[in-house]
């Protein structure tokens, strides 16, 4: 009990405020470097997962076939990430003979990617499936081809759910990427595991704080991206003042035009 409480919070703040912890020392990497690594593990896995899950989800939603792929992806969620990571590490890393970190990075990326696919796939699929049937009917009725209906109508209207799937995946990846530090890789998990091993609890908690802050920032960033990409007609974020005030109307129009372009090219 002696180590808990306000004094510990003070110690954590002291740890986080120490510039040498940010820059690193000759022997240890600092917060900046570990943050970069953490972001790159997450970013790569998220990108690959999106490249797989978004087209797949669009296709399943559009054709109405392959719903079992969604169930399968959901079943993957029951595999514990840490167990899978360690299994893949002991399988793969011997082939690299410890010369590079690839033996650890590849398993980490596989685990993170498997974690990210289910929420993105489910979000995309649900997004397309939830498009008002009358809207889809009208799109075909006006002579759009299947691909045009998918890209010009179903995708822009399913964007909120697609992006919310990506947001949920990103949060899970940021949390789970910490376990990369268990198989000895970098990332913000490094401070948690090192702090634990050295009984340096301010460092351990400081690492936790950094992970939480990163998660919050990334979620805010993705929320902002969502705001830019999703048409106000879909999100319901109409500029009410634009109707009344002449000046604001012009601004709203240019934003609308930008959204329209994005809606077509995404």
């Amino acid at each position: 009990m002696a180590t808990g409480g306000p004094r510990m919070i003070g110690n954590v703040i002291t740890w986080l405020n120490d510039p040498s912890h940010w820059r690193g020392t000759g022997t240890t990497d600092g917060i900046v470097t570990q943050l970069e690594r953490h972001i790159s593990y997450v970013g790569i896995a998220l990108l690959i997962a999106m490249l797989i899950a978004v087209p797949l989800g669009l296709l399943i939603g559009h054709t109405g076939r392959g719903g079992s792929a969604v169930s399968l992806a959901n079943a993957i969620r029951s595999i514990p990430s840490i167990g899978l990571l360690i299994l893949l590490v002991v399988i793969i890393s011997p082939h690299f003979h410890g010369r590079t970190q690839a033996g650890f990075i590849i398993p980490t990326e596989i685990v993170l990617m498997l974690l990210a696919v289910p929420p993105i796939l489910a979000g995309t699929y649900a997004g397309v499936e939830n498009v008002d049937p009358a809207v889809r009917d009208a799109a075909y009725g006006m002579g759009m081809k299947g691909g045009q209906v998918l890209l010009k109508v179903e995708l822009p209207n399913s964007l909120p759910l697609v992006i919310s799937g990506v947001r949920s995946a990103a949060l899970q990846l940021i949390a789970t990427a910490t376990i990369a530090s268990f198989v000895p890789l970098g990332g913000l998990g490094r401070f948690i595991y090192d702090g634990l091993a050295q009984r340096d609890f301010p460092q351990m908690i400081g690492g936790g704080v950094l992970v939480a802050l990163l998660a919050l920032l990334v979620d805010l960033l993705l929320a902002a991206i969502q705001r830019i990409l999703v048409s106000p007609g879909v999100s319901g974020r109409f500029s009410k003042r634009a109707d009344r005030r002449r000046g604001a109307a012009g601004e709203a129009d240019s934003r609308v035009a930008a959204v329209d372009e994005a809606g077509v090219t995404v």
Partner: peptide, 17 residues
């Protein structure tokens, strides 16, 4: 949005554990 592992290590100082 708080990662689980962060929550694990944040709980003790916050709750005097």
């Amino acid at each position: 949005t708080i990662p689980s592992i962060a929550l694990f290590v944040l709980i003790p100082p916050l709750l005097h554990l």
